[in-house]
Nucleic acid binder design. Structure first.
Lengths: 210, 210
DNA sequence: ACCTGAACACCGTTCAAGT
DNA sequence: ACCTGAACACCGTTCAAGT
């Protein structure tokens, strides 16, 4: 049995393996992780402060490099790109979503993404209230859509009883991608609503100032 | 030590106590639950098939009596009431949300609520595709908003670094209820979008038929 | 029928011991 | 510095035993 002078483990390797495990099996435990790494469970604790720390590392891998939202042509484009990137990151690893959602974010890179979006909206002329509400809406949208990808509501599992929902499902176009369409439609509605509000605020601001 | 001939436990009592435990402490384990009921852990298994079954019972308590959506004046009213009821049920027990979300729904009463909504939309003249997408959007909205209530994104915890997000938060009106506003605004956008689509489908249908 | 204690197979974390 | 085995305090579930 070789005793390497080079360390076998690293935070990077541990988190990558954990993500891989979740992608394959939908879950991960430290014993499984250790087994997969060919190492004892306690070894892991030399590179990582515990399970929560691994999940945080996985979040960094999943959310990946920040969306470059600042260089968008206009704010609407930035909003759409931000939301698609956010949801797309989750969509690539649906099995990891539950673990990520039940734990508080501490990744600075991700907070920075929210900041970048806020900055775009600020520059576009949105009022502070509108910015806060808009980002909440977009956040909710992406998380709701991500959860739908992770574990679609049973409602969508067609069963045998007759019902309006079943009728709608069976009669829906065969090419309807329910999850993508709901996400894109809702995103479009939000953008339209924001544009409307911006125009309204601008005219109200002009009226108040003039 | 009295040995009652009347059973001490019941599924009802177990689930109620579990919900109460979650409301107070944010979690529940079988040992805690047994302790709170003044009973041994194994006793619980005489009334309930396991932990998942308890969570399902809690879901029934949280979602409570179905929203009477069928007797609404119009479809828009029904949609708004459905969504508010759904989110309101979660909002009353935010600590229970994580447990409910990570487990598949098997409560027939809740599936019936989705059905009722589908029926309202069907009668209003929405196409099957539109119904499926609309219910997905509303489901995502309520779950996203519920998660926001359960564990607001850290983004909203104002920290000390300067950022556009922090500026928006500190400059936002003091009476802004971020979570309620985002939910209501988004709901209004969805209803408006649906109304728009209904009008569009109707005119297209007329044109095609005539 | 209902409650119990003991046992089982897990889990995350710690820590003294090895090299 | 890094890896290990053993121990700890938990968890959900089962089951033979009591009344």
């Amino acid at each position: 049995m070789p005793r390497p002078h080079q360390p076998i483990l690293s935070r990077e390797l541990i988190c990558r393996t954990a993500l891989d495990l979740m992608d394959r099996t939908g879950r991960f435990t430290l014993p499984e992780l250790a087994h997969r790494l060919g190492v004892s469970v306690s070894s892991i604790y030399h590179h990582v402060s515990g399970r929560a720390d691994i999940v945080e590392g996985v979040r960094g891998l999943v959310m990946g490099p920040p969306a470059s939202v600042a260089d968008s042509a206009d704010w609407a484009d930035a909003v759409v790109r931000w939301a698609r990137t956010y949801r797309g990151a989750f969509a690539a690893h649906p099995a990891a979503i539950p673990a990520l959602l039940k734990q508080t974010v501490s990744e600075p890179a991700i907070l920075a993404q929210y900041d970048a979006l806020a900055e775009v909206l600020e520059k576009a002329g949105f009022a502070p209230d509108a910015i806060v509400v808009a980002i909440t809406m977009l956040d909710n949208l992406c998380i709701g859509a991500a959860l739908d990808l992770a574990a679609p509501s049973v409602v969508w599992a067609v069963d045998d009883r007759d019902s309006a929902l079943r009728r709608a499902l069976t009669q829906a176009g065969p090419k309807l991608n329910r999850q993508d369409r709901a996400f894109e439609d809702q995103l479009a509605l939000i953008v339209r609503g924001l544009a409307h509000q911006l125009a309204e605020d601008a005219s109200a601001g002009t009226a108040g100032a003039g």
